[in-house]
């Protein structure tokens, strides 16, 4: 694409971000978001055995329309850099250890967010020989986002419950 066409596209498009809509999320009883995460939370995502529906919605939450970055959330490349671990999908046999390792590798204070109905009760995958359990069986989940897949608004509401912006 030529420079002028790119420039005209940028000026024509302007800002695509929409005002955020409220969405229901489930917060663990007694969960207090860590004080130091106010206004800034880096997110490491773990796909523990998801169908990738939740990942598409998570990607959209960080895209131009929903723009989770305006609330201080950002995706990072390493659990060492992260404050929030998001988990999507059922936990398959092969992902039990990587999931626990990722959570262990995240510095305290950390928050665990589970995304999608599969993380509670395994959804349609319940009973499969490849499934070791749901996320609840392996870690204490602080915020749960319902939906199959959940809307980006709900994922943003969960992140805002941590950053409080």
């Amino acid at each position: 694409m030529s420079l002028t066409r790119l420039l005209s596209m940028i000026t024509r498009t302007g800002t695509m971000t929409e005002p955020v809509a409220d969405a229901p999320i489930e917060i663990r009883e007694g969960f207090v978001p860590p004080a130091c995460l106010r206004g800034s939370a880096q997110v490491r995502h773990v796909d523990a055995g998801s169908c990738n529906g939740c990942e598409i919605e998570l990607g959209a939450a960080f895209g131009p329309v929903y723009d989770a970055e305006r609330f201080g959330a950002r995706l990072v490349a390493s659990p060492r850099h992260a404050d929030v671990v998001t988990v999507a999908g059922v936990v398959t046999q092969n992902m039990v250890e990587p999931l626990l390792n990722t959570i262990d590798a995240t510095p305290n204070p950390r928050v665990i967010i589970s995304i999608g109905d599969c993380t509670r009760g395994c959804g349609v995958f319940a009973g499969s020989y490849a499934v070791a359990g749901s996320v609840d069986d392996f870690a204490e989940v602080d915020v749960h986002v319902t939906g199959c897949p959940p809307a980006p608004e709900a994922i943003i509401a969960a992140l805002r419950a941590v950053t409080r912006r």
Partner: peptide, 19 residues
């Protein structure tokens, strides 16, 4: 802004680093 997003604002790196 050029990507069509709002972004975290100009003091966001301060928040990140203090955290």
């Amino acid at each position: 802004r050029l990507e069509g997003r709002v972004g975290g604002g100009i003091v966001q790196p301060w928040r990140d680093v203090l955290k």
